[in-house]
């Protein structure tokens, strides 16, 4: 039902190719982690999946609906794909609670009171029930990122995309965010997680993809890929990351 499928995704900027033909199928409830060197196209892949970037070629499906169809209801499809960004991107002019209710009220037409109640529930779920009235600037990076996750969840998405969500955080704040993601994965959320957290990848995801130069070079069970990479490029990348 809510699987994500991409076929032959190509993204070019001028004559610079960022994605060189990516096929991907993420089943409902599956958690897929994507690793790879910077510039390998991981983020662009995520952004093509919810059409923040329009792929130059290829097709994207959410369930049985094609997002890349010319007349696709893109806004509606996007609202069913939650996305969390490296730089949080909370709305700084609104309170934490308003950040969570804005889209449900304006896009879904949800009753304001009901949206507030649901938002409070989600804030409790990410451990920030007491921050509802604060402005984002008063929160730590880790707290802001958890609010961003709750904000995406407020739309009741069919799947979630995570774009290096812990890369901008101080090390001691990373765990709280990963814990929330771990809990989500445990609850059966379909997730695509671009990450540098090898521990999280090993422990939480069902399948690990290694990307380089705009293509998926290797994929498999995380324990297999991390412990015994088949491809030379994967080996080189992992030895560099794990040595650090």
């Amino acid at each position: 039902m809510s699987s994500i499928r991409a076929a032959g995704l190509v993204k070019r900027y001028g004559d610079h190719t960022v994605l060189a033909g990516v096929d991907l199928h993420v089943a409902e409830g599956e958690v897929v982690c994507v690793i790879g060197p910077s510039g390998s196209g991981k983020s662009t892949l995520l952004r093509c999946l919810n059409l923040l970037e329009r792929p130059t070629e290829g097709r994207v499906f959410l369930g049985d609906q094609e997002m890349t169809a010319p007349d696709a209801p893109v806004d509606d499809l996007r609202s069913r794909l939650g996305m969390v960004f490296q730089s949080f991107n909370l709305f700084p002019h609104r309170t934490v609670l308003d950040n969570l209710t804005m889209a449900p009220v304006s896009v879904r037409g949800l009753d304001r009171q009901e949206a507030r109640e649901r938002a409070r529930g989600l804030l409790a779920r990410v451990g920030l029930a007491d921050k509802a009235g604060e402005h984002p600037a008063r929160l730590s990076g880790g707290q802001q990122q958890r609010v961003a996750i709750a904000r995406a969840l407020a739309m009741d998405p069919a799947a979630m995309l995570f774009d290096e969500v812990t890369s901008a955080l101080d090390p001691e704040l990373v765990k709280d965010v990963l814990d929330v993601m771990r809990e989500l994965a445990g609850a059966g959320m379909t997730m695509i997680v671009v990450t540098h957290e090898m521990g999280f990848a090993r422990e939480v995801c069902d399948r690990l993809l290694f990307m380089d130069e705009g293509a998926i070079v290797e994929e498999g069970a995380p324990s297999d890929v991390l412990a015994a990479p088949k491809e030379e490029r994967t080996r080189r990348f992992l030895s560099r990351v794990l040595a650090a």
Binding site: D76, R78, M102
Partner: peptide, 22 residues
């Protein structure tokens, strides 16, 4: 910041809603 537009659009908000609310 461009990230504001991206966050709003990724929540399913239209261009118009993004401009008006964010």
């Amino acid at each position: 910041d461009r990230g504001q537009t991206e966050a709003a659009r990724s929540l399913g908000m239209s261009h118009r809603q993004t401009m008006r609310l964010v």
